[in-house]
Amino acid sequence: MPKALVAYVRFTNRISRWVGYVVMYSIFAMMGVLLYATYAKAFLIPPIWALEVSQFMMVAYFLLGGAYSLLMNAHVRMDLLYGTWQPRTRLLVDAVTAVFLIAFLVMLLFGGVSSTLYALEYGERSYSAWRPAMAPIKIVMCVGILLTLMQAVAILIMDVARLRGLEIDDGLPAGDPPT
C-alpha cells in the first residue's frame, strides 16, 4: 500500500477515535441539561432553552459519533446473509457498500455546507421562543459528516488492502484512549 494511503488511514482513525472519546462523555452534559430542565420544571420556572439545547447536543452526539461508530464497526448491519459469507465475500460487499456510503455522505455534506452558508449569510434562527442561531449546530453537522466521510474513505482503503492480502495497522492499541 502506498505510504500516503497508510498515513491517511492512521490519521483518520486517530481523529475518529479521539473525537469519539470526547463525544462519548458529552452524554453526561446532555443528562445534566435534561436533569436541570426536569428540576426547574417541577420546582422553578421552566427554562425556554433546555429542550433545544438538549436537541442540539443530541444532534452533535449523533453526528460526531458517526466516524467513531464506523471505526469500531459498531453500526447497524443487516446480518441476514452476511454472517454466512466467506471473509473475502464480506470484504468485497463491505467495499462496495463503502462506495455507496461515500457517495451518500458527499451529497449530505454538499447539502449541509449549502445550509450552513445560508445560515451564516442570513443569520438564520430557530423558530422557537428562545430563537438560537442555527449556524453553530449546522457547522457541527458539517464537521460530523466530514469526519464520517473521511472514516468511510479510510474503511474503503482498509477493505481494498485486505482484499489484496495486506493489513493496515492504525498504530493504536485496541480500546485505549488516544494520546
Rank of each mutant, 00 (worst) to 15 (best):
R14T: 09
R14G: 13
I15E: 04
S16I: 05
S16P: 08
R17K: 01
W18A: 12
G20T: 04
Y21L: 00
Y25H: 07
F28A: 14
F28R: 07
F28H: 08
F28K: 10
A29W: 00
M30T: 12
M30S: 10
G32D: 00
V33K: 11
V33D: 04
L34E: 02
L34P: 00
L34C: 02
Y36A: 03
T38G: 09
Y39E: 08
A40I: 02
K41C: 03
A42D: 02
A42R: 13
A42Y: 06
F43I: 15
F43T: 15
I45S: 13
I45V: 14
P46Y: 04
P47M: 08
I48F: 09
I48N: 15
L51I: 15
V53M: 09
V53T: 14
S54W: 02
Q55W: 02
V59Q: 06
F62G: 10
L64S: 10
L64P: 11
L64M: 09
G65I: 10
G66C: 05
A67N: 05
A67F: 00
A67H: 08
S69I: 15
L70R: 06
L71S: 07
M72F: 05
M72W: 00
N73L: 05
N73M: 02
A74P: 13
H75W: 03
D79W: 00
L80R: 14
G83P: 04
G83H: 06
T84C: 02
T84Y: 13
W85Y: 12
W85M: 15
W85S: 13
W85A: 03
T89N: 15
R90V: 14
R90G: 06
R90E: 06
V93E: 04
V93G: 10
D94H: 10
D94I: 04
A95F: 04
A95H: 07
A95T: 12
T97D: 01
A98H: 10
V99G: 13
V99M: 05
F100W: 05
F100P: 06
L105C: 12
L105S: 06
V106H: 06
L108N: 10
L108V: 11
L109K: 07
G112D: 00
G112N: 03
V113F: 07
V113A: 10
S115Q: 12
T116D: 02
Y118M: 08
A119R: 09
L120S: 10
L120C: 05
E121F: 04
G123N: 03
G123L: 03
E124P: 09
R125E: 11
Y127S: 13
S128A: 01
A129R: 06
A129E: 05
W130Y: 07
W130H: 03
R131N: 01
R131D: 04
R131H: 00
P132M: 01
P132K: 03
I137A: 02
I137R: 09
I137G: 04
K138I: 00
I139E: 03
V140S: 04
M141N: 14
M141I: 12
M141Q: 13
C142R: 07
V143P: 00
V143M: 03
G144V: 05
L146D: 06
L149K: 05
M150I: 11
A152R: 06
A154H: 04
A154G: 06
I155N: 15
L156Q: 13
I157A: 08
I157Q: 05
M158D: 09
A161M: 03
